[in-house]
């Protein structure tokens, strides 16, 4: 049951992805609408599958690699839908949707069966810590994509030679303003994620901060984004420079999430 719901969500995401890619080529409004409604459907089906899994497992389903990737994709889809309702950024769908699809297909590579929860994870802090961290990371992922796009488009306009990206994607000001919004939403989520994690660690492991690789990297991430906020608000950085810092911040998130889980190991390596 649960698996078939999840597969239908993936199907809708793929349909949306293909529509957006077709929209990039053809520019037809009806194709974009198809992509949009497929995305809305995919998001809600996906949400239902996560809720089902929660009911089946009896705990927040963010405890292994499959669940983590799936939930991360869900957060990205949700945040992108929110941005779509705020800005006219239809063309961004062909950048964001392929990544959502890749994340979900990647998730399928991991075992999806529900296992009993490790004793150390049995806590009310599990949903709070993971949901806030994942939301923050998803928002910063979107801002990472937007920043890469900004840098390419800005370079095109400065160099005056080709206009492949700047002609098709939202204006520089729109991209910059999305970046600003991502910063002002992502940072509080990240901060709450880190603080709740630390409190939980205090209960579970007896120490609020033990400098394991994941903790260290999330602190580095937090510092990068703190610098970004400072430079943006106090010094008046805009555009290209903030986009570069956004990219640096997300590389740091990648280390926290993928690098630590897959390569280094440590206290956090449940997934």
């Amino acid at each position: 049951m649960n698996v078939s719901i999840f597969y239908s969500a993936i199907f809708c995401y793929l349909l949306s992805t293909l529509s957006y890619l077709a929209y990039l080529v053809s520019g037809k409004k009806t194709v974009e609408r198809t992509g949009h409604y497929a995305l809305v459907a995919a998001f809600f089906i996906h949400l239902v599958s996560v809720v089902f899994r929660y009911l089946q497992a009896g705990h927040t389903p963010i405890t292994n690699m499959f669940e983590a990737l799936s939930f991360f994709a869900l957060c990205i889809a949700g945040f992108f839908l929110y941005l779509k309702a705020t800005y006219r950024i239809n063309s961004l769908g062909c950048i964001v949707l392929p990544f959502i699809s890749i994340l979900l297909i990647w998730a399928l590579a991991y075992p999806a069966d529900i296992k009993p929860l490790a004793p150390v994870l049995r806590s009310y802090w599990l949903p709070v810590h993971t949901i806030f961290s994942f939301l923050g990371n998803a928002i910063f992922f979107v801002s990472f994509l937007v920043s890469v796009l900004y840098i390419i488009a800005e370079r095109e306009i400065k160099r005056k030679k080709t206009f492949l990206f700047s002609a098709r994607f939202p204006s520089l000001e729109t991209l910059d303003s999305i970046n600003y919004r991502c910063m002002s939403y992502g940072f509080p989520f990240l901060t709450v994620g880190i603080i709740t994690g630390s409190i939980w660690a205090g209960f579970a492991w007896g120490s609020y901060w033990s400098w394991d690789p994941k903790e260290t990297w999330s602190l580095i991430t937090w510092i990068v984004y703190a610098i970004l906020i400072h430079n943006r608000l106090a010094i008046g950085w805009r555009g290209r420079k903030t986009a570069y810092l956004m990219i640096a911040g997300f590389i740091s998130i990648l280390f926290t999430f993928v690098g630590v889980n897959l390569l280094i190991g440590g206290l956090h390596s449940y997934m």
Partner: peptide, 19 residues
């Protein structure tokens, strides 16, 4: 798709910057 007169190009470029 792409404008060719000076004024229309200036406007098109500014749309790529400002929306």
């Amino acid at each position: 798709y792409n404008p060719v007169s000076i004024s229309s190009m200036a406007v098109e470029l500014s749309k790529r910057i400002f929306g």
